[in-house]
Amino acid sequence: MGRWIDRVGVVGTGLIGASWAACFLAQGLDVVATDPAPGAEERLRRQVDRAWPVLAELGLAAGASPDRIRFEPDLEAAVAEVDFVQESGPEREEVKRETFRRLDAATAPDVLLASSTSGLMPSLFQAGCRHPGRVLVGHPFNPPHLIPLVEVVGGRETAPEAIEEAMEFYARIGKRPIHIRMELIGHVANRLQNALYREAYHLVKIGAVSVSEVDAAIAHGPGLRWALMGPCLLQHLGGGEGGIRHALDHLGPFKEAAWADLGTPKLDEDLKDKLAAGMDEAMREVDREAMLRERDALMVALLKAKAAAGHLP
């Protein structure tokens, strides 16, 4: 472990893999990408080109260039000489297991093998590897070329040194890695998101609010604060001089009553129809591509503002 990382292998070049490739390129790294899907190289290069202006606005590392990417259809050839592998293939256990078996056989034993999986546990696909100690999860948030968070999760056989090296690498390329100390379905951030989704869907199902009103309740309310700091720190600041302890003592009974009243909806056809119809109505007169460009521009502005702030975590 501990080798300097200059060349990254990107395995799987769909939405997440291509975004990772753009991120690595913007940090001045060489990228060797592979994907068996027809037309994968063309789609990859198109997505990198699309992301590049935003990455340039955020700031490129010395030597960064989209020309430093090479596409290699053969997986073993693609990763034969890389220093780090970021896998972003299909979210199916049997596919992950076979992919990591091949990656383990084709790479040097000290090359970290990280998966972007959003829900699978690394122990499930490190078992068939000769060197399972270097296999872990490095789960990004979409789009990885913009969102800093990376969740680093080890499996039963992952070496502590591999976790440390992965954390250092992701931090070096401008990410905000967090170490999740146990294997959980969905890791941590997705579990937090899903807790919110569950209640949002419940409120739509019972007719308390519309789909667009659920979104407004977050985007124009707590979401603005959540973009700056996490829920525990926000509650600590909201507790005044007494901090989070005062807030918990004061609001604890209300929180417990609210928890007891939360819904447990089923994603049946009726609920899926309501959610889809609500989004169709909300997007009826919206230019999707223009919205995505606006989202990215606002994200860049927010990232710059947070980077310039001296006291935000």
Rank of each mutant, 00 (worst) to 15 (best):
R97M: 02
A189C: 06
E168P: 00
W20N: 04
H202Y: 15
R156D: 07
A301F: 05
L29R: 15
E57Q: 15
T99M: 11
S65R: 09
V31A: 01
I244N: 01
E269S: 09
L298T: 03
V95L: 11
L271A: 05
E269V: 02
L303M: 12
E289W: 06
I178N: 03
L60W: 09
T99S: 03
R43T: 05
P222S: 06
R176L: 07
A61M: 07
D30P: 00
D268Q: 07
W20Q: 05
L234M: 14
G28H: 09
G223R: 10
P231K: 08
E213I: 07
D30G: 04
Q86K: 06
A301E: 15
V31M: 03
S116M: 08
A80H: 10
Q126N: 08
G9S: 10
S210R: 15
G230H: 10
M167F: 02
R295P: 00
K272G: 00
A277P: 00
V32I: 14
A56R: 15
H202T: 09
R156T: 09
T158A: 01
L251N: 08
A62S: 14
W259R: 14
L149M: 10
L149P: 00
P36G: 06
M1Q: 03
P177E: 08
P140V: 06
D270G: 05
A290E: 15
A258K: 11
A51D: 12
A260G: 04
G39M: 13
